[in-house]
Design a binder for these strands. Structure first.
Lengths: 174, 174
DNA sequence: CAAAAACATGTAATTAATTACATGTAACAA
DNA sequence: TTGTTACATGTAATTAATTACATGTTTTTG
């Protein structure tokens, strides 16, 4: 395996909401999901083909206008099973692509038990990370002189702390 | 071009600070830089080779112990030029890999004019984005019912706003 | 009605990135 | 001294992702 192929799960999640074309899926990355993930149509169309081979999804054709036939994709039972297994897996606290946010996006029910579990474990992960960052700050930039000496690095660390701290606050509010 | 190959600039930035081995560079992604970027040694070593061919860097060998010879890399004038050109380019407000943070990390001087410019343009970009997100929230989740109906999506949008808002505050503090 | 924008679907070429494979040295601690 | 951890450097195989190429239809707007 080279990567977790999370795009696959995003597609499953989106199709779990309802039937969609490749174009619809691609569009989702221009708005909502684009907030924390990106994908191009040239990545989506081949993946849809592969996912259909793997029996995660199927498609039906829709006649539109005189000539155009579009493919609308649907999630299969196997696809739903895979999607839910992914949701239940622990999420890494990656700095770039945030898998937790990604999973959260697909939780509909505010009172879901899964949501509760997800938030608790993520909160643990993030508070650990925050205290680690705070240790680093104290260690590397103990005084004003050291802060000024490497201002960019100092700012970035401050930013990471603020981000993590905001993240923790937000998690607590869920 | 398939991507911006920002790893190249990170390496230039790190070598601009001082001579380093491939191992040193790889280690940087376990601590500081790991906060907002990732790279493996298997990506770094081949890239170092390529960058040396492109005359961005050179290396000298260091005898250590009885047998081991390590390669310590240095940035060339051309490399420095390229690095500074990158710093001066506008940074995208990507959601995953944050190029602005990346550049900031390499700014030493708190009173640098470049820093001032960078912050101003990034602030503009980010405030625009924030207001766009706030519009989205008002549009998609106007009442409690809509928030509950799609709680995960609501949380994610709230998170994006909180993140952007924190980002803007942090930028203002630089 | 004509033009433009949005819809719709793909492939090809290239580059980026991960995981796994592969090997060996040096320093340090028990 | 022996085992473990950290240092050190690569390659190979695979997958992920971007950019560019390619084409055509439908809907909307002026």
């Amino acid at each position: 395996m080279a990567q977790k192929n999370r795009l696959q799960y995003i597609i499953l999640g989106l199709l779990n909401i309802g039937s969609k074309t490749g174009y619809d899926l691609a569009k989702a990355f221009d708005s909502d999901i684009g907030e924390f993930w990106s994908a191009n149509h040239s990545q989506i169309y081949p993946l849809l083909k592969k996912m259909e081979q793997d029996e995660m999804i199927t498609h039906h054709e829709i006649q539109v206008g005189q000539k155009l036939v579009k493919k609308s994709y649907d999630i299969t039972d196997q696809g739903k099973k895979n999607f839910h297994e992914w949701l239940e897996e622990p999420s890494e606290a990656d700095n770039s692509h945030d898998e937790f946010i990604l999973k959260l996006y697909f939780i509909k029910d505010a009172n879901s038990e899964l949501l509760e579990e997800m938030v608790v474990s993520q909160l643990e992960l993030r508070t650990d990370k925050l205290s680690h960052l705070q240790d680093q700050l104290a260690d590397k930039f103990p005084d004003q002189a050291s802060q000024q000496a490497n201002y960019g690095h100092y700012c970035v660390l401050k930013h990471a702390i603020q981000r993590e701290s905001g993240y923790v606050d937000w998690l607590k509010g869920i």
